[in-house]
Computed example of a mutant assay.
Amino acid sequence: MTLLELFQLLKRHVKLVVALPLVCAVAMGVFSFVAMDDAYTAQTSMYILANEDTSQGQSTYYNDLNASQLLANDIATLLNSDRVSADAAKALGLESLADYDASVTSETTTRVVSLAVTGPDPDETAAVANEMARQVSIVAQEIEMADSINVIDEAVSPDAPSGPNRTLYVAVAFLAGLFLAVAIVVLMDMLNTRVRSAEEVEELLDVSVIGRFPTMKEGR
Rank of each mutant, 00 (worst) to 15 (best):
Thr2Trp: 04
Leu4Lys: 09
Leu4Cys: 07
Leu4Ser: 09
Leu4Pro: 03
Glu5Asn: 13
Arg12Ser: 12
Lys15Phe: 06
Lys15Gln: 05
Leu16Trp: 07
Leu16Asn: 03
Val17Ser: 06
Leu20Gln: 00
Pro21Asn: 11
Val23Phe: 01
Ala25Ser: 06
Val34Leu: 05
Met36Trp: 01
Asp37Tyr: 04
Asp37Met: 02
Asp37Trp: 05
Asp38Gly: 13
Tyr40Cys: 07
Tyr40Gln: 09
Gln43Thr: 13
Thr44Ile: 11
Thr44Glu: 01
Thr44Ala: 06
Tyr47Trp: 10
Ile48Val: 15
Ile48Tyr: 03
Ile48Gln: 06
Leu49Cys: 02
Leu49Tyr: 14
Ala50Gly: 14
Ala50Leu: 10
Glu52Trp: 03
Asp53Gln: 14
Thr54Cys: 06
Gln56Ile: 01
Gln58Arg: 14
Thr60Arg: 13
Asp64Gly: 15
Leu65Cys: 01
Asn66Gln: 11
Ala72Lys: 04
Ile75Cys: 10
Ala76Tyr: 02
Ala76Glu: 11
Leu78Met: 09
Leu79Arg: 14
Asn80Glu: 12
Val84Gly: 00
Ser85Phe: 01
Ala86Glu: 15
Ala86Cys: 10
Asp87Cys: 13
Ala88Pro: 07
Ala89Asn: 06
Leu92Pro: 03
Leu92Trp: 10
Glu95Thr: 14
Ser96Trp: 02
Asp99Ser: 11
Asp99Leu: 15
Ala102Cys: 00
Ala102Glu: 15
Ser103Gln: 11
Thr105Ala: 07
Thr105Glu: 06
Thr105Asn: 13
Glu107Thr: 04
Thr108Glu: 12
Thr109Lys: 12
Thr109Ser: 09
Thr110Cys: 02
Val113Tyr: 00
Leu115Thr: 10
Thr118His: 05
Asp121Asn: 12
Pro122Ile: 12
Pro122Phe: 06
Glu124Met: 05
Ala126Gly: 04
Ala129Val: 09
Asn130Arg: 08
Met132Val: 04
Arg134Met: 05
Val139Ser: 09
Glu142Ser: 08
Ile143Asn: 02
Asp147Thr: 13
Ser148Gly: 12
Asn150His: 05
Asp153Cys: 09
Asp153Arg: 11
Val156Leu: 09
Val156Asp: 05
Val156His: 08
Ser157Pro: 10
Ser157Arg: 02
Ser162Lys: 10
Gly163Lys: 03
Pro164Trp: 07
Thr167Ser: 12
Val170Phe: 03
Val170Ser: 05
Val172Asp: 00
Ala173Leu: 05
Phe174Lys: 11
Leu175Ala: 13
Phe179Val: 15
Val185Ala: 02
Leu187Trp: 08
Asp189Arg: 12
Thr193Cys: 04
Val195Ser: 03
Ser197Trp: 03
Glu199Gln: 09
Glu199Gly: 14
Val201Lys: 01
Glu202Gly: 12
Glu203Phe: 02
Glu203Ile: 11
Leu204Asp: 02
Leu205Ser: 06
Leu205Lys: 03
Leu205Asp: 07
Val207Ile: 06
Val209Arg: 08
Arg212Thr: 15
Phe213Arg: 13
Phe213Met: 04
Pro214Trp: 04
Thr215Arg: 02
Thr215Tyr: 01
Lys217Thr: 05
Arg220Ala: 13
